[in-house]
Simulated assay, not measured.
Amino acid sequence: MSKKEQREGSLSEQLNEDVLTQLRSKKSELKQSEAERLEQEKQKRLEEKKKKEANKSFEELLNESELDWKTFKK
């Protein structure tokens, strides 16, 4: 093997390592952005649930209650 062939082989191996490094980096970035997106969606759902709960009428809250009001009535 000549020196030129050794350099080309090294260059191709190095290029592949660079490409793999870039792909791994991109993969971790995508995982992080997906995790952030899911967390934002979760926070949004919790906020909507709190707003909905705060806007319920007394009648709705009473109907959702598990207490049997007839047992307190005598």
Rank of each mutant, 00 (worst) to 15 (best):
S2C: 02
K3C: 08
K3A: 14
K3L: 14
K3M: 10
K4E: 14
Q6E: 14
R7T: 11
E8Y: 06
G9R: 15
S10F: 06
S10A: 10
S10W: 11
S10M: 07
L11M: 08
L11I: 12
S12V: 10
S12W: 06
L15T: 05
N16W: 05
N16R: 10
E17D: 13
E17T: 10
D18K: 00
D18F: 09
D18I: 12
D18R: 03
V19A: 12
L20D: 14
T21E: 07
T21W: 05
T21P: 01
T21F: 08
T21K: 14
T21H: 10
Q22S: 12
Q22Y: 10
Q22H: 11
R24S: 05
R24M: 05
S25Y: 01
K26E: 15
K26T: 13
K27R: 07
K27T: 01
E29H: 03
E29K: 09
E29S: 13
L30P: 02
S33R: 15
S33Y: 03
E34Q: 13
E34M: 08
A35H: 02
A35I: 01
A35T: 07
E36D: 15
E36K: 07
R37E: 13
E41L: 13
E41W: 05
K42A: 14
Q43E: 13
Q43S: 14
K44L: 12
K44T: 06
R45T: 04
L46G: 02
E47F: 09
E47Y: 06
E47Q: 13
E48T: 08
E48W: 02
K49F: 10
K50A: 00
K51R: 14
K52R: 13
E53A: 04
A54I: 01
A54C: 02
N55K: 09
K56D: 10
S57V: 02
S57L: 07
S57G: 00
F58D: 12
F58H: 12
F58E: 09
F58C: 06
E59C: 11
E60P: 01
L61F: 03
L62K: 12
L62D: 01
E64H: 00
E64T: 00
S65D: 15
S65Y: 02
E66W: 07
E66N: 06
L67Y: 03
D68T: 01
W69R: 02
W69D: 08
W69L: 11
W69T: 01
T71G: 02
T71V: 13
F72I: 13
K73E: 13
K73I: 06
K74A: 04
